[in-house]
């Protein structure tokens, strides 16, 4: 039963993902790319507002919080009644991270980055390992047409509403 269910979905999606004929013109989603070069721009930045938070990690006296696809906020929390932002780690394409000793490990688009954070205000990239994670090539929470993602153009960091011309990909 379960496999039938999965099989049907898979089959229908496969069909749905075939090139449309004619191609679709109209409203849909378009990928927003970050160049692979820009992905490596990892550094401290000015503090910034939290707009779309992700995973969190508590290590006194700091609380670390992902800003999806943008970086990691760092807050000083030794006074629970008056937490203060300290810095922001710019990590393009980040969704998640963890800490061990002096190091922070995070996804950086499809790459795995190791960052020395022993000096919280002056972080240093230790290594970037390319293409450890598979990229997401479809818009989440979207039913309809979208411009097919082309990884040769860069890492897909987000999706924006757009009027599409000759769109060939579809989710439903």
């Amino acid at each position: 039963m379960r496999y039938l269910f999965i099989g049907l979905i898979y089959l229908s999606l496969f069909v749905a993902c075939k090139k449309q004929d004619p191609l679709f013109d109209g409203p849909g989603k378009r990928p927003v790319y970050i160049s692979y070069e820009e992905l490596t721009d990892i550094r401290n930045e000015e503090i910034q507002p939290v707009t779309n938070s992700g995973p969190i990690f508590l290590r006194d006296p700091y609380l670390f919080m992902v800003e999806k696809k943008q970086g990691i906020h760092v807050f000083e929390i030794s006074n629970s009644s008056d937490p203060q932002p300290v810095t922001f780690f710019k990590i393009p394409g980040v969704n998640d991270f963890t800490l061990s000793g002096d190091f922070l490990y995070a996804d950086n688009g499809p790459n795995l980055v190791t960052i020395n954070i022993s000096d919280i205000l002056n972080i240093q990239v230790v290594s970037i390992q390319n293409e450890m994670f598979q990229p997401m090539l479809f818009p989440p929470d979207h039913e309809g047409f979208f411009e097919c993602a082309d990884p040769s153009k860069g890492f897909v960091s987000s999706w924006k509403d757009a009027i599409l011309i000759n769109a060939a990909c579809q989710t439903w």
């Binding site: 999965i6 898979y10 999606l13 992700g54 989440p140």
Partner: peptide, 28 residues
């Protein structure tokens, strides 16, 4: 990554995940 044929094979898998996982990408 520039191999489009390979990409087309991959997309249905992602779409499958999209439908089942879709709006649940809120991670925390």
């Amino acid at each position: 990554m520039s191999n489009l044929v390979n990409m087309k094979k991959i997309i249905p898998f992602f779409l499958f995940v999209a439908v089942l996982a879709g709006a649940c990408e809120k991670q925390g």
